[in-house]
Computed example of a mutant assay.
Amino acid sequence: MITLSDDVKDCIAICTRCAQTCLGEAMTHCLEKGGDHVAPAHFRHMIACAEMCRAAAAIMLTGAGHHASVCRVCAEICEACARDCEQLEGMEDCAATCRECAESCREMAQ
Rank of each mutant, 00 (worst) to 15 (best):
F43R: 06
M1P: 08
A50G: 13
R83D: 15
H29A: 06
L88C: 07
D36W: 04
A13E: 13
R54N: 11
Q110F: 08
E92P: 05
T62C: 09
R72K: 15
L31F: 11
C94Y: 01
A68K: 14
C30D: 11
I12K: 00
L61E: 15
T28P: 02
A102L: 05
A64P: 01
K9N: 10
I59N: 04
A82M: 07
I47T: 15
A13M: 07
C15K: 00
I2V: 15
A41M: 09
R99M: 10
P40V: 09
G24S: 08
R54S: 14
Q87T: 13
V8F: 05
V70I: 12
H67V: 05
E76F: 03
I77W: 02
A55C: 10
C98L: 07
C71K: 00
E25A: 12
A75Q: 02
R99I: 06
A109I: 05
A56V: 03
R44Q: 13
D93I: 05
A56C: 14
V73I: 14
I2G: 03
M27P: 00
A58N: 06
C105H: 00
A82R: 02
A82L: 05
E103N: 11
H67I: 04
S104W: 01
C71G: 07
H37K: 06
A48V: 06
E32D: 13
M46R: 02
E25F: 13
C18L: 02
T16Y: 07
A26G: 06
H45P: 00
